[in-house]
Design a protein around this nucleic acid. Structure first.
Lengths: 123, 123, 123, 123
DNA sequence: GTGGTCTAGACCACA
DNA sequence: GTGGTCTAGACCACA
């Protein structure tokens, strides 16, 4: 379910955070479902448990997971996550528009490109 | 001319690389003009000369600066840089479109936001 | 495995880059095998870790090594490296042919020499 | 007569040494003809006289130029220079053959390439 | 443990 | 003066 690219420059714990977020967004991990335990996921991915723990801690701090003592980690509210991610996308878009304008890209060219990308099939 | 954020997670040498790229893109540093020397910029920014050297070396490898031994560093072809940066912006845009689609953002909403950002004044 | 000439005009980090490239070409360092750590190689060669780091960084930029944060450096695709090196040899050969022609060396003499060198045993 | 590439990584004094050698090899500077003075060449090329002096000193040490006190620098024996350059070309060729063999290039491929380069027009 | 960044300071080649 | 290399040593993120 979670695939890690060990050759990536992105830290493993960040990759786990993002993969879990995506699984929640896509509904594969529904709200209040139980996450695999730190140990079992560490074994499954052949990763140091400290690294899994770090990812879970971050997800908990973000309010995306919640911990029940003695029972484990559970998926929180997915709407919150989706709203936050949408905002992040728009924030990035704003930055990108600025960069593009500095480079002399016209609004029309930018929109044309965007529509182009929108039409493409995604794998 | 170059402002460094010492608190940033982004390494100092990367900040310098990006600031110099921007100054070239904006035409503030025209082609074939001489860059400040490694030592003088180090003093000006209160940074170790090695760090400046690292930034200049990267800019040289990217073909953005060229070095004349014993004379200094000079600005190279700015068109090359701008073309590369434009491509980078479009690549980022494509990624962003994919992210947005996964989050259920509609094409129309995306374009509306983009037009909004385009109208804003920039500092 | 790696021998450095401290008297050479060639910088130490370049010597390391070339030695590593040769060990990969010869198959002594197979793809995906782990490189010695920056620190251990520094101790082994009695060289400052920063210098090893510089060599490894260059090899990574060339796509010859890949780095996994917190784990180490690993050998990448050797075919890519070999193809690039072959091209470099032919490019040098072309330059050499031009130089030879300017000096009045005949094509026949050049080929005779080349065949001679080819027959020699190499250590 | 001498063209310097100020953007080259090759030091200017080395460029001068090589250009002068080439002019002698091609017979443009015949034996016993007088070289331009350090000062006049410095003015002509807009270069620091120290740099010209360094080039001339090297050429004298190589026996390619000779100095007559109070009169200036003169071109020496060109045969000596040509013989030495030929040897240098063959030495480089030997190194190249070794590199090629290590890379798995066949003798036939190497000779074929060489003949190819030999046929090409030169500018 | 691993690599990555940075400082302080030295010494070199080159112009 | 200019850039380039190297050492010694510190501190950080990551696994």
């Amino acid at each position: 379910m979670i695939v890690i690219d060990y050759q990536s420059r992105q830290p493993i714990y960040e990759q786990i955070v993002e993969r879990v977020q995506m699984l929640i967004i896509k509904g594969i991990l529904p709200p209040d479902s139980q996450m695999p335990s730190v140990r079992s996921l560490a074994v499954e991915l052949s990763i140091n448990p400290n690294t899994i723990q770090k990812a879970y801690t971050i997800l908990e701090q973000q309010g995306i997971l919640y911990t029940v003592k003695g029972r484990g980690n559970f998926v929180g509210d997915s709407e919150l996550l989706i709203a936050r991610k949408k905002q992040a996308v728009f924030d990035e878009l704003e930055l990108l528009v600025r960069k593009g304008r500095d480079l002399g890209i016209s609004k029309e060219e930018c929109i044309r490109q965007m529509e182009l990308y929108w039409k493409e099939e995604t794998s």
